Simulated scan of single mutants.
Amino acid sequence: MREVADCLQLKGMGNVTQGQTIVVKVIKTNECEIHANQLKATWTQPTGETNKTQVDEDDNGDFFVTGKCTNPGIYKLDVSANGEPIKQSPMVINVEKEGLVNTIKTRHQENIRDVFKCEDDCLLVSCSKNEILMYKQSGEYIGNLTLPQGVEVYRMYKMKNGNIVFSDWGNNSITICNMNGQLINSFGKEEMIPHGIHVDEASNIVYVGFTSSVLLYNIDSEQKIMSIGTWGNQEGQVRGVIDISLTNQRNVLVLDSCNNRLQLFDNEGRFIKVLVRAGDENGKVMKPRGVVVDQDDNIIILSEHKIQLFSSDGNFIKRIDKEDGIKDPWGISIISYHPRRVAVGNRGDKTIKIFSY
């Protein structure tokens, strides 16, 4: 019976956040006949307590085990086939406590405007200047990208090809540079100052938030494609688009700062609904500053004094920051999914704060 166990292997995440759903796959490394009822799985908690759990089978005939660890600490998952442990069993999973993970003091005490994750554990930080600062998530200052005089980097988006697309307050345009600080292109100069920015790399479209609308441009042709929203207070109208993001279905999330709300539009620009409304209490927003979407299609909204997690339909889930001194924050970026982490630029004390949620 050992042959069956030898053709199977556990594959999953080594680190998760408290309360995050864990999915561990049982991979077939060789051809073998195996059924779900031949597999047994057991969780061992940090206290030493054990409990058996079900092994499920998906539509492709692959096996997986799910779990949700509510307490921080080291968990173990043992999986056996016909009583024999399979490869990589037991799997050790570190469950990280929710809340503040690290505070990075910025080197020059900068006026932070945005934070974005880069490769190699690096964070890009903009400060309305002609440079982009770089820090490791551990807090170490790496260096900076220096851009030509007159450029002012506000919101930014790092593309997979290595280029950085940003709203340029110095030139009232959308500007693109590479990781050497060389300018590649500049376009979309409007009468208004660009604010929020998001790139849909699948379609090569950049979404740019202005005072009275969101404008879409094709990055290659530089042509304006369409406009979303009009000036006003009514639903479907906007007054100051401070940030933009896309759902996993490619609908458009528009953070309407002066109206203190998050609105949802489809990718044709049609208004769908208000997801989050104005208010100081949890589940509402006041002076919103940033919005991002995680892999589970949850929405994270950064406001003047708090960070909140919402479901894709706008239902409030929880506060992320707890009592960690968020004040006048600008810029938010998801930096990890296992464990779930975000980085926030906190202008109140000129730091970058990293939270596990």
Rank of each mutant, 00 (worst) to 15 (best):
T103M: 07
Y135V: 02
G162Q: 04
T146F: 01
T211F: 03
V79A: 08
D220E: 12
M192I: 02
L10H: 01
N15Y: 01
S173N: 14
N172Q: 15
T247C: 07
G331E: 02
I244C: 11
V115Q: 01
V153C: 00
E110M: 09
Q149R: 12
E49Q: 11
A5H: 00
I299Q: 10
M179A: 04
V238H: 10
V24S: 10
K117Q: 09
D328C: 04
H198F: 13
D324A: 08
W169L: 10
Q234C: 03
A278C: 12
Q308T: 08
F210I: 10
M134Q: 12
G48P: 08
S203Q: 10
A81H: 07
I86C: 01
R270Y: 04
S227I: 12
F271G: 05
L39A: 14
I174P: 03
Q237E: 14
D58V: 09
Q137E: 11
S333F: 02
V125C: 08
L246T: 12
I307E: 10
C258E: 14
I132W: 05
L246M: 10
E49M: 09
Q182W: 11
Q308G: 11
D328L: 04
I272M: 12
R340Y: 05
T53S: 08
R107Y: 04
N144D: 08
V26G: 06
T146I: 09
S213R: 06
V115L: 01
A202F: 03
E201L: 06
D6R: 03
N60Q: 09
Q38Y: 15
Q308M: 11
T29I: 15
K287I: 11
S167H: 01
E3Y: 05
Q263H: 03
R113I: 03
I74L: 00
S221A: 09
W330A: 11
C69S: 15
S356M: 00
K28I: 04
Q182H: 12
T351H: 08
G150I: 02
K25A: 09
G99N: 13
S257G: 12
D59L: 13
Q9H: 09
G67R: 01
I332K: 07
Q9I: 13
G143P: 03
P339K: 07
I86H: 06
S333M: 05
G12M: 11
D121W: 00
K350M: 03
S227F: 00
D243M: 14
E222D: 00
E152A: 12
E96Q: 03
V292K: 13
T230Q: 11
C258Y: 15
F310D: 04
E235D: 15
I335H: 01
F166G: 08
V291Q: 00
K189R: 15
K160C: 07
N346V: 08
G61M: 10
T175N: 15
F64C: 14
D296M: 10
S257K: 12
H198G: 02
K87F: 07
S138P: 00
G48A: 14
